[in-house]
Design a protein around this nucleic acid. Structure first.
Lengths: 100, 100
DNA sequence: GCAACATTTAGATAATTGTCTAATTATCTT
DNA sequence: AAGATAATTAGACAATTATCTAAATGTTGC
């Protein structure tokens, strides 16, 4: 699991925006491009980072390359986050380990 | 909420390691320093990033400055992650948007 | 108040990252 | 196969980031 890749990918606002757009369903590189004020080349670079982190998947559809969220990695990401923090809200110093 | 700061802070492996160490309880800057092969100055920089993201809090205790996790931001982070991904595994194209 | 200690801040440098333009690859249509 | 379209790759450059050394700040104990 590429923890580093995932966190790195999420660190850029453009990439997070791309992920957010993809929530609405798969989009081609060009369609995404139309939504951002940036060259196709720059976006392509962002796609590469997202792909390396396994956050998106691609499928060629004729002339288009279609991007979609890879939801399975979402679980991993959630796990990472939970793993990085203790499980309790704000342990008032007396409560011994609660549930999960 | 400083979404950008939080994600940026999490993007560095040293910082994630610091967070992980703090799970075991609060530690002074020096104690943390003993765990990493890096100058105190460099670590201090990482502390600053973590603080700016509100992921840790500090308290001066005499000569020491003690760092601890700020668990409340954990919730925010979880929310961000959940917000960034749809809730369903792999919406089969026909299902109209579910709850929340 | 001075010396020792713990940590941060300042300033410099090397590595990484985000963006661009130009060139390349892949696909479709005729 | 040639031309048009969609996207990626290559190469360059500016901005950001991580790290270091040296200096400064804040705290304790004599």
């Amino acid at each position: 699991m590429k923890q580093q890749e995932v966190f790195r990918a999420m660190a850029d606002p453009t990439r997070r925006a791309i992920l957010k757009r993809l929530q609405g369903g798969a989009l081609s590189a060009g369609e995404i491009g139309a939504l951002f004020d940036m060259t196709a080349a720059s976006l392509s670079h962002h796609f590469a980072v997202l792909k390396k982190a396994d956050l998106v998947r691609t499928e060629r559809r004729g002339r288009y390359i279609v991007y979609s969220l890879n939801n399975s990695v979402f679980e991993d990401l959630a796990r990472m986050v939970f793993d990085l923090f203790p499980l309790k809200e704000n342990p008032p110093r007396g409560s011994s380990g609660g549930k999960r």
